[in-house]
Nucleic acid binder design. Structure first.
Length: 667
RNA sequence: GCCGACUUGGCGCAAUUGGUAGCGCACCGCUCUUGUAAAGCGGGGGUUGUGGGUUCGAGUCCCAUAGUCGGCUCCA
């Protein structure tokens, strides 16, 4: 038999027919290979002219394979303990994997421990994953006990319908992976799977852990049965697992809900209701600083400030379409003024009032309050408008998903011709302001309508042109643009600005939405220069998204260590002993004169205790004064990271603090 | 909304198989105060989320309800 010419990791080789990845790759860290671009098991037999690359376990593909194989081991463990469990899907995800099961009883934490033990046994036994090609009818017979797998087989080839199940059936040939016990040579477990897999369970090692269990709808639809999902994490080594768990711990420390309590920023009193926050004085200062600066910038950029009430009669939301399209997201109406006679007949028709879920209809009414000319446009109305949305109970989440929140909401009324220019300047304005608040890393998302979904109102042609305009402006910004099909608001497409925080998580911040529908529903007009009446276009624009949410994101971004301009207390004077109180009062008074939030700690606590207290409170500047400082008319800085700078002359200390606040830098 | 877990003084946590609520921090008072993350002593504070039930007896068991957390679905 003639030998085969192949390319392996860029090198031309000649190998014997029947050669597999095991012969090609000596390194244990190669867990699979890419053959002509397709991921394959190492056991795959190579063909002439194949272009082959080894897949390192540390690579993205390698990690996915590791995690996917670990998911298989989990499923095997579940069925070994509970043979009645039916298998759903088990794909790799960021940092780990999950597997869905249909079981009579949800998993308890004890169950998860037992499953981890069972998984360890499977892993140690060194089972081999072996791929076997089958076909629809044979697989349906073999998997007659696995109704969900059979459903997936039926969906094969239909990529959209398969969705998350792509790891099971993919779109190519149907395959089953058999797990062989190396001792007995017998198949101990099998699962419908596209693969590839690690050659051997032993390679999973001890870098995995089961994290939690939760219910999840089969194939992601509320209409389907809920399965029990077990989440796990898996890494090439125990050290990497440990590092991952530490990262989770770090993220937990930044959680704005936790910091909100620790730093006394806000709370969600049970008496008020789910998803409704109150801001405490310290949180209130931060929020006020955020709002004040935003107001200033809006003023400078040609916005008008408007105000509107929190409730309105139902007809406004009928006209706007909210009651038709958005009713589920609204609080139920307050029914007022109805009078009924003694026979139960209505004497006076009542009125329904609704809490507003959006501010746009009010701003539209302001637009309509007088005849408008092209000279008035672009008309930019800005409001910190508090809205109320009846979020489903299970989704409320601290400040980032609340039922009452304040949008820094603006509506721009522009002529058709000005849309592009205005959009461009809005986007620039938005990004500039976000940078001032300390966010640097952005990408854009273009949320569009999904064809055929009745959630979206208005004419297709209008949607199309609006979407095209947004896309043009977004592309020109030079930022990465990610499509988000089906993510638009009911009245129009949007660009959203996604910002990355300090630990790499992305948050949807600003949204810029183009709206041709509401102007039409409200019959908005202006007089053009030629005297004809024309319809303006609306741009909806929120910058923080919601102030509460932005507050939460900034809290996590900064881990509670706010830059001086936002810090609730900017400076604390700490005397080395009582004797220096008066001296420090003078220094602090000087700062207060310039509007600095500063105080002297004259409590009975000892000196080191005071340092500790204000470090825990994350005060940016601690000014310490003792004899040496007083004699030199100086103070000593201590910063939050523990560093210090002694004997700084009072005047330059004041300048330095003022400059740090003014320039919005982090210290 | 769905599934599961949880709810004990302001905060973080304890309370063996149901036997009558403890600790640390914080708070208040007193004493003591000189250099970079916790001085000492004393004191007050909880009808164990709420409403029912089982029991001689419930923080511990059951039901309902509110809230929180983790997911799913949905979203600023």
């Amino acid at each position: 038999m003639s030998s085969l010419k192949v390319s392996v990791d860029g090198q031309d080789l000649t190998v014997e027919p029947g050669t597999s990845g095991f012969e090609l790759f000596a390194s244990k860290s190669i867990v699979a290979m890419r053959v002509n671009g397709e991921l394959r098991d190492l056991a795959h037999k190579i063909q002439a002219d194949d272009v082959i690359e080894g897949v390192e376990i540390e690579s993205e593909d390698g990690l996915n394979i590791l995690r996917h194989s670990t998911a298989h081991v989990l499923a095997q463990a579940v069925q070994s303990i509970n043979p009645q469990a039916k298998l759903g899907i088990g794909p790799p995800i960021k940092d780990g994997f999950y597997y869905d099961f249909d079981v009579a009883e949800p998993f308890t934490p004890e169950d998860l421990k037992a499953l981890e033990k069972a998984m360890e046994r499977i892993i140690r036994s060194g089972q081999r994953f072996v791929r076997r090609v089958t076909n629809d009818s044979a697989a349906s017979v073999e998997l007659s006990n696995e109704p969900y797998k059979i459903e997936l087989i039926g969906l094969k080839g239909n990529k959209d319908a398969v969705g998350d199940g792509a790891a099971e059936v993919g779109t190519g040939e149907l395959t089953i992976y058999d797990n062989f016990d190396p001792q007995t040579g017998e198949v101990v477990w099998s699962d419908l799977c596209r693969g590839p897999h690690l050659p051997n369970t032993r390679m999973i090692g001890n870098g995995f852990a089961l994290m939690r269990s939760a219910a999840a709808y089969w194939r992601g639809s509320e209409k389907n049965k809920q399965l029990q999902r077990v989440y796990g994490t898996a890494w090439p080594s125990k050290d990497q697992l440990r590092a991952h768990l530490e990262r989770l711990e770090e993220a937990a420390k930044r959680d704005h809900r936790r910091l909100g309590t620790e730093l006394d920023l806000f709370s969600f009193p049970e008496e008020v209701g789910s998803g409704l926050a109150v801001f405490h004085p310290r949180g209130g200062i931060i929020r006020k600083a955020m709002e004040d600066y935003s107001r200033q910038r809006h003023e400078e950029s040609g916005y008008d400030f408007v105000y509107s009430p929190h409730v309105t009669k139902s007809n406004l939301f009928e006209t706007s379409g909210h009651l038709e399209w958005y009713a589920e997201g609204m609080f139920p109406p307050l029914q007022l003024d109805e009078e009924v006679d003694e026979h139960g007949h209505v004497k006076k028709q009542g009125q329904d009032y609704y809490l507003k879920p959006m501010n746009c209809p009010f701003h539209i009414l302001i637009f309509k309050s007088q005849g408008r000319s092209y000279r008035d446009l672009p008309l930019r109305m800005f409001e910190f408008g508090t809205v109320y949305r009846y979020e489903k109970s299970g989704v409320v989440h601290g400040l980032t998903r609340a039922r009452g929140f304040t949008q820094d909401d603006a509506h721009l009324f522009v002529t058709q011709e000005d849309i592009e220019t205005e959009l461009r300047s809005v986007l620039e304005f938005v990004l500039g302001l976000l940078r001032d608040y300390g966010l640097e890393d952005f990408y854009l998302e273009l949320s569009t309508k999904e064809d055929g979904n009745p959630k979206f109102v208005g004419d297709d042609a209008i949607w199309k042109s609006a979407t095209a305009t947004l896309e043009k402006v977004a592309t020109e910004s030079g930022l990465t643009l990610v499509p988000d099909p089906g993510g638009a608001a009911f009245y129009g497409p949007k660009i959203s600005v996604q910002a990355k925080d300090a630990i790499g998580r992305t948050w949807q911040m600003s949204t810029i939405q183009l709206d041709f529908n509401l102007p039409e529903r409200f019959d908005l007009e202006y007089t053009a220069s030629d005297g004809t009446r024309k319809r303006p276009v609306m741009i909806h624009r929120a910058l923080f998204g919601s102030i509460e949410r932005f507050f939460g994101v900034l809290t996590e971004h900064y881990a509670g260590i706010f830059p001086p301009w936002l810090a609730p207390v900017q400076v604390v004077g700490i005397p080395v002993a009582d004797e220096f109180n008066d001296y420090l009062y003078e220094v602090i008074a000087e700062l207060k004169k310039h509007g600095v939030r500063a105080q002297v700690d004259v409590s009975d606590d000892r000196f080191p205790k005071k340092i500790r207290n204000h470090t825990k409170d994350k005060v940016p500047f601690m000014l310490i004064a003792g004899g040496e400082d007083r004699d030199a008319n100086a103070v000593s800085f201590r910063f939050r990271d523990g560093s210090q700078e002694n004997g700084v002359p009072v005047a330059s200390a004041v300048d330095r603090i003022l400059e740090a606040i003014k320039s919005k830098v982090q210290v």
